[in-house]
Each structure stands twice: as C-alpha cells, then as structure tokens.
Nucleic acid binder design. Structure first.
Lengths: 116, 116
DNA sequence: ATCGACCATCGACGATAATCGATGAAAGGC
DNA sequence: GCCTTTCATCGATTATCGTCGATGGTCGAT
C-alpha cells in the first residue's frame, strides 16, 4: 500500500533504494574516516594497521570495512593470514551521477555503475 | 578516548561527522524520492500536494522534509497556512566536493559549501 | 469568535545500526 | 602435531531511525 500515485515519471522504489544504499555507506563518520585513511595511504592496508589508527575496536573496523566492501567502495584481498583493503576510486564516481539522476539532470538509466 | 593516532594528516572527527551528515540526508529511499519529486516538478510544492504522491503519511513527509531542510537540500517558504518546499540544487553540489576531499583529491579547505 | 484547512510536533513502536568483548577459523612458523 | 598471529563472525547492548496516529498551533474565512 505504498506506491507513489505517480502520474509523473518518478524514480521507482528500487532505484531509490539503490541510491539510498550508496549514500548510507558513507553516512557514518567512522566509515568516512576509514575511507579517507585508505585514500591517503594510497596502498592496500592490513586490518591491524588500520585498527591502530582508527580509534575504534578491531571488530568495529572489520564491520565497517565489510559495509564499504559490499558497495565496492573498498576492495579486499587476502594475503596469507592478513587481509589488505584498498580504496576503489572508480565506484565512488557513482555519487555525482546519482545526484544528477535524482535531480533529473541525468540521461536516466543505470548510470556509471563503476564496474560492479 | 577515540582519536586517530594520526601521524598522517587525516580528516578530523568534526569534518567526518559533517560529511557523514550530508550523506545521511540521502540515506533513505523516501527522502531520495521526495527530493526527486521536487526536482522533477521544478517548483515550490505544498506539503499536502507532496503527500498525495509520496505514498507515506503526512507526518512522515513532514519529518523527512525537515531533515532535508536541515542540510539545505530543500528550502521552505511559508505562504499563508501552507508551506512550500523546493529543491536547492546549489547545496547538492557538496557531494562531488565531499568525495574528492575524502579521497584526498581536493584542494583541501572547506570546498564549495554551496552558500550555506 | 468559531470553524476548517494545513502543517509541525509529540509519543510510541518496531526495525536497523554502531559498538564492544569473546569466540571461531584460516594460515604460518615451531 | 601445536601455538601464534590475523582477521571475521557471533551475541549482547545501546542508540538511532522510520513510520504511524493523534494532538497542537497557525492562518484565513465565515
């Protein structure tokens, strides 16, 4: 019982959920800082190394890295007993495109998904 | 008890919270749809008019409009007994700038705040 | 002054999310 | 084999969020 009455061509519910999910991935200060740390280092970093600088517990860091990885804002690579995370700049390009679509300035459609 | 150990020049906690707040404003499908509706109409709309097309209750719409207004993504204007909301495209320009700053590609500093 | 239309706010509820400590699982070194 | 290191996952706790119905406040008209 929850559809837009929609005489006008509006974003459908699924697209709205997809866009919201992207924004939600960066809707937490800890994740913003983790992403920025990885970007500034510019190299794959081990989780323990990240934890040393994050100011939050190891399980918390792991949790947030997982969320960032699910939307491909970071990439994970196992290396022996360690896991290296690095920033994935390509996928972060979705934001300008998403904003343009929401504002109706985009050619609609999927937009640059960044190679998901 | 929660600071980055920060030998490297990282985003400070306050900046991270500010960026996260911007992303959080669009981290909900209903807000994405409301913003898109306002953008497609391209004119100030009364709340009742928005409610007719939003598929959620009046108080819910009012709640979300308030959140969008707090970050200036929409602007409110009382007109008699009614309140008109319209999209504020200028402030939505913060996203490309925010992403560049988080990725360390920005000229640092405040970035285009959009005239807040 | 009263009424009606319009919208914001309140209170409550369920759902989701952030954080932590503890436990578990995989890989390497002994 | 066993122990250590490294990380992911689990369980619990607390806080935040989305939604609703109901109430309250403001303005215009009668």
């Amino acid at each position: 019982m929850n559809e837009m009455r929609s005489t006008t061509p509006l974003i459908d519910a699924e697209a709205a959920r997809r866009y919201a999910a992207w924004f939600r991935a960066l809707a937490d200060p800890t994740r913003v800082r983790l992403l920025h740390l990885l970007a500034m280092e510019g190299r794959p970093m081990a989780v323990g190394e990240i934890v040393e600088r994050a100011g939050v517990g190891q399980s918390t860091v792991s949790h947030h890295l997982k969320i960032l990885a699910e939307v491909r804002f970071v990439l994970a690579e196992r290396q022996g007993t360690s896991t290296r995370y690095e920033v994935n700049r390509t996928c972060l390009a979705v934001f300008p495109a998403a904003v343009r679509t929401i504002l109706g300035e985009a050619p609609a459609g999927e937009g640059s998904d960044g190679g998901r």
